[in-house]
Nucleic acid binder design. Structure first.
Lengths: 155, 155
DNA sequence: GATAATGTAACACAAAATATTACAGGAGGA
DNA sequence: TCCTCCTGTAATATTTTGTGTTACATTATC
């Protein structure tokens, strides 16, 4: 049996670390804004990730309207009240999930097979709903909520 | 801003297609069992994916107790009533999510930074609950449910 | 005007997913 | 029994995605 043996490595499918990095960035802004100039280099130090990566993610957060960036020696600033930003706001800012969905469908089911012909009809709607539910759950948590250790997400 | 320009390609993070392939395999068994010898070659034809990939996934489904495989000219058979198999059963059979979670955390937050020090305390519990909720949603759908076009997953 | 930071290209590298080839070994049928 | 078909799985290649690194033009503040 030994399934693990021929599965090379972890085989983990995950939401990219861009998401937790983005939350980390926003939390740094919440903590340091007004106190320090929050540059990509500064953030790189707290997050432990290359400054260019940070800048890319900041660009995405900026496109999503969450932060604004001054050139020169300003650093990153909040563009709205970050208390109200939800995890979904962050997630959708940094993951291009829109274009494909959370699930990856095998691309060539055989239309000549009675099962292959119907597999999309069978699954698409349900998978879409599951994804939607996942996103709604992320919408229900704001950055402010994270501060209270026991967030009430019904488990 | 043209975020897309410097994001190479799709940047999509997805549940591997092993999941939909596995559902496809099980649906083929539900449809063809008793009618035809369901070999990896046969499935490869319906699914449009290499037969070796199919065999690996079948091995995982077998480990999970969903199917059994005869050697020789038998092919794949159901090992239990597939009507009752949930999407989570399939998902957990083919994704090694257990070892890392759905979310990928950046591995080196700086413990000397007041934010970096607390980022795990801030996020871990909430992310775990979101993942749990995602999995529960998959648990609520069986293969039989898929047959009725309008599955009642509260949206 | 000097300095420091961003925006982003270009490229390198690592990790994961999938494809392909190959073949040993078991089961069933002739 | 022997042949054939199919599985199990190794080895390897290819593709895709994510991340790291270097570089530099641009722009805002000091």
């Amino acid at each position: 049996m030994q399934v693990q043996i021929f599965l090379r490595g972890a085989e983990i499918l995950q939401i990219s670390s861009r998401f937790t990095i983005a939350v980390h960035i926003l939390e740094c802004i919440r903590y340091f804004e007004g106190e320090a100039s929050i540059t990509s280099e500064f953030l790189s130090g707290s997050i432990g990730v290359n400054a260019v990566i940070i800048r890319r993610i900041i660009s995405q957060l900026k496109s999503a309207g969450l932060v604004k960036v001054g050139r020169g020696r300003i650093g990153v600033l909040s563009a709205r009240n970050l208390d109200d930003v939800t995890l979904y706001d962050v997630y959708s800012a940094v993951e291009a999930v829109s274009s494909g969905g959370l699930f990856h469908f095998h691309p060539n089911p055989n239309p000549k097979c009675p099962v292959g012909k119907n597999i999309h009809a069978l699954l698409d709607d349900t998978l879409r709903k599951i994804q939607r539910s996942f996103e709604d759950r992320m919408r229900s948590v704001t950055l402010k909520d994270l501060q209270s250790v026991t967030v009430d997400i019904t488990e």
